[in-house]
Simulated assay, not measured.
Amino acid sequence: MQTPPLMTDRPALLRNRARADADALFLHGEVLAEVEERLVEVNRAFTDVAVVTGFPGLWARPGAVVLPDDEVLDLRPQGHDLVIHALALHWANDPVGQLVQCRRALRPDGLFLGFLFGGQTLAELRACLAQAEAEVTGGLSPRVLPMGEIRDLGALLQRAGFALPVADSFTKTVTYRDALALMRDLRAMGEGNALMARLRRPTRRGVLLRAVELYAEHHAGADGRIRATFEIICLTGWAPDESQQKPLRPGSAAQRLADALGTDELRLPVRGGDG
């Protein structure tokens, strides 16, 4: 079987992260607050926590094991009751493999929380860069990481063997002076272009200037500042366990739906093959 081409250039990604500025990592702070809120709702004490992240300093917590998002995760099988994949899964060359490894690291009825950028992230920047490059050079090159849609990402949880899978999202809109300021901030976040198929030469000045113009024309507010959208998807799943709630078998209901609704049941006529 042919191995699919790698999407992410891991050495480039690690270089980008090493140059990141802690003051620009505010989206990790948003995700951390979201994790804490969701764990309060779960109302369970977790004692063996693992966090997978590209920024260990931000996620270090007493008693938690913090490890990098390598292709092979350094997780002990059934060694944890909570695994958090913290805003790094969008860079995985094998996201299903990452999820499977996290599920195997959980004890029965252990919880997985995964956060990653979703398909609406940087939609404005992607559109402006694509139009600018097409106008100036007549072609297109990979510049922004392709990110999954929420429905597809939720299906990955099922493929990885999680029970009770749920995918939901929230959106953060951030404003900048102009598109160049946004691009600088992305580099400071460690989220610069690390695609394997990226151009290995600097972007032409004309492309950047045209993208700045298009962004200001289509995505600026009344104050002249441009808007940038970040969609953050949360994947929630549980390691299977016999104690978990299971769907009822078809035909096992104790009460007819019509009785519950207080209506009459309509029986459709049986039609034969001739109609």
Results as ranks from 00 to 15, higher is better:
P62E: 10
H85M: 06
P77F: 03
R61M: 08
D81Q: 10
H85G: 04
P56M: 10
H85R: 01
H90M: 09
L87Y: 13
L75I: 00
A86F: 04
I84G: 08
V96D: 08
L82M: 13
A88Y: 04
V83S: 01
G79Q: 07
D94W: 13
D94G: 10
N93A: 15
L58P: 05
D81V: 13
L75W: 01
I84W: 08
L67I: 07
L75E: 00
R76A: 08
G79V: 04
A86S: 11
G97H: 06
L67T: 14
E71K: 03
A60Y: 06
N93Q: 15
A64I: 12
F55N: 06
L67N: 01
A88E: 12
D94K: 02
L89H: 10
E71P: 12
P77E: 11
W59D: 12
D69M: 10
A60I: 05
L67V: 03
V72A: 12
G63H: 05
E71I: 07
L89F: 07
D81N: 14
P56T: 11
D74Y: 00
A92V: 11
L67S: 02
G57L: 01
H80P: 02
A60L: 14
A60Q: 15
G63D: 04
A60G: 11
A92T: 12
A64L: 10
L58N: 05
G97F: 10
G63I: 05
H85Y: 00
A92P: 15
L75G: 00
P68H: 09
W91E: 05
A60V: 04
V96L: 14
G57A: 12
Q78T: 14
N93S: 13
A64K: 11
P62Q: 09
I84A: 08
H85E: 02
H90C: 11
W59N: 08
D70E: 09
P62G: 04
L89G: 09
V65I: 00
H85T: 03
D74K: 00
L67H: 01
W91P: 13
A60N: 12
L67G: 02
L67K: 01
A88W: 03
A88G: 15
V65Y: 01
D94N: 14
N93Y: 14
R76M: 06
D94L: 07
L89S: 11
W91C: 03
H90R: 01
A88C: 15
H90A: 09
F55S: 12
G63M: 09
H80T: 03
L73I: 03
D94F: 10
A64R: 11
G79Y: 10
